[in-house]
C-alpha cells in the first residue's frame, strides 16, 4: 500500500476511496464548526463588553487619536448614593461626558479629591491642553464645566485650623 493511502494521524491504512472521501468531508465539517465557534465567541465577547448604551452626542470627535484616549468602556449603570460605583463620580447632567472624556487618561480620583470654581476647572482644562495633550473639547466644554462646577466646587472656608474630626477613639493599652 502507498503512503498516501494511510491516515496521516493514525498511520493505519485507509480501506478504500470511499473512506478517503468521507475523511475529506469530515475535515471540511470540522473546519466549518471551528469557524462557527469563533464567530460565536466573538459575539459573546461583544455582548460582554458592549452594553449598547452610548448616548447620542457623547462622542467628542471622530478623530481616532482622540478616540483612543477616551474611556470607551460603556457605563454599566451601577449607581450607589447617586454615584457611579466604578468611578465615584456623581451621576447627573454631563456625567457620561466627563466619565468618557476624563477617565481615559487619569483616575477619576483626581477629580474627586479636588474642588474648584467653574473658572478654576476651566484653568485645569487649559493646563491639560497646554501641557498634557488634552484636545479641544469644543461644544462639550461648557457641559463638562457645568458638571464639575455643580458637583465639585469649593466648600465653605475651613479657617486656619478646623476642629479635629472623624476621630476614631480607642483604648490605649501601653
Amino acid at each position: 500500500m502507498k503512503e498516501k493511502d494511510k491516515n496521516p494521524k493514525t498511520n493505519k491504512p485507509l480501506s478504500n476511496p470511499n473512506t478517503q472521501q468521507l475523511f475529506k468531508g469530515l475535515l471540511v465539517g470540522v473546519a466549518g464548526l471551528v469557524a462557527v465557534l469563533m464567530i460565536l465567541l466573538a459575539a459573546v465577547m461583544f455582548f460582554a463588553f458592549y452594553d449598547g448604551s452610548v448616548e447620542p452626542g457623547t462622542a467628542v470627535a471622530s478623530d481616532s487619536s482622540i478616540e483612543s484616549k477616551l474611556n470607551n468602556e460603556p457605563f454599566n449603570g451601577e449607581v450607589v448614593d447617586g454615584k457611579d460605583v466604578a468611578t465615584g463620580l456623581v451621576v447627573g447632567d454631563g456625567f457620561e461626558l466627563v466619565r468618557t472624556t476624563c477617565t481615559g487618561c487619569h483616575s477619576s480620583a483626581i477629580i474627586l479629591q479636588n474642588r474648584f470654581t467653574r473658572e478654576g476647572w476651566k484653568a485645569k482644562i487649559v493646563w491639560m491642553q497646554e501641557t498634557q495633550g488634552l484636545w479641544d473639547l469644543g461644544e462639550n466644554e461648557p457641559a463638562i464645566l457645568d458638571y464639575l462646577a455643580t458637583h465639585y466646587s469649593p466648600e465653605p472656608p475651613k479657617g486656619r485650623r478646623v476642629p479635629l474630626r472623624d476621630i476614631q477613639w480607642y483604648e490605649l493599652k501601653n
Binding site: 459573546v44 460582554a48 451601577e78 460605583v85 465615584g88 483616575s107 480620583a109 474627586l112 479629591q113 479635629l164 474630626r165 472623624d166 476621630i167 476614631q168
Partner: peptide, 23 residues
C-alpha cells in the same frame, strides 16, 4: 485625621455580581 476623609478613595466593596460581570 484618623479616619479616611470623605473624598478619599477607598477600596471598592464587592458589588453583587450579575451574569455579565461573571462572564
Amino acid at each position: 485625621m484618623a479616619k479616611p476623609g470623605k473624598h478619599q478613595l477607598t477600596k471598592r466593596e464587592q458589588s453583587p455580581k450579575n451574569r455579565r460581570d461573571f462572564l
